[in-house]
């Protein structure tokens, strides 16, 4: 059963557990590859996570002269292959979401690989497995479909990913509360 990373952005409470968990994934060498942003930092405390969305047509891989960014059979866009990455940083410029990080010393790009050692066996990625507020979830397409019914929007709006993104992605993003015009109280 294929599962996807599914983000309900507005649930985020800014605890940054996902960042801490990311550092602990095998091969990440204790550096996190995701982000958490304050939406309106000087006014309120709403935060939203941002991570690689694993595009179906990834700009990073298209712009890589070394074919260092491989796409796994699960659809995950992997981090740069260590022996191929030549350190040109094209991918960091190409990514529409600004996700890839670059290490000058090691001369290599690194980005979210959806914890491929876990997700290839159906285990949720580190970030989703620790998220305390259900912002990051690991769901089947069917479960995402059920969520769609559950929210039952009267304005006909249900959004996973498009049109807030630049193209179709393997990670699905949603903002049910904001679309309904409901202010959530935590």
């Amino acid at each position: 059963m294929k599962k996807r990373l599914y983000l309900e952005l507005e649930n985020c409470i800014g605890c940054r557990s996902c960042l801490a968990a990311c550092t602990q994934c095998g091969g990440h060498e204790e550096r996190n590859r995701n982000y958490v942003y304050d939406v309106n930092p000087l006014v309120n405390r709403q935060t939203m996570p941002l991570m690689c969305l694993h595009c179906e047509n990834p700009a990073c891989a298209r712009s890589c002269p070394a074919q260092a960014i491989q796409i796994h059979e699960t659809g995950a866009v992997l981090s740069a292959l260590v022996e191929k990455c030549i350190g040109c940083q094209n991918c960091t410029i190409a990514c529409p979401y600004g996700i890839p990080k670059f290490d000058q010393e090691q001369n290599i790009m690194y980005k979210c690989d959806l914890c491929i050692d876990r997700t290839k066996d159906g285990i949720p990625p580190m970030c989703a497995s620790v998220c305390p507020s259900n912002t990051l979830q690991w769901l089947t397409d069917e479960e995402i479909e059920n969520k769609k019914k559950q929210f039952n929007l009267d304005n006909g709006k249900w959004v996973t990913s498009m049109p807030y993104l630049e193209g179709e992605t393997n990670v699905k993003v949603n903002l049910p509360g904001i679309l309904q015009g409901i202010t959530k109280l935590f």
Partner: peptide, 11 residues
């Protein structure tokens, strides 16, 4: 800025 711009598209 690109990352914040994306957050802006969502919120």
């Amino acid at each position: 800025c690109r990352r914040k711009y994306r957050i802006a598209q969502f919120s």
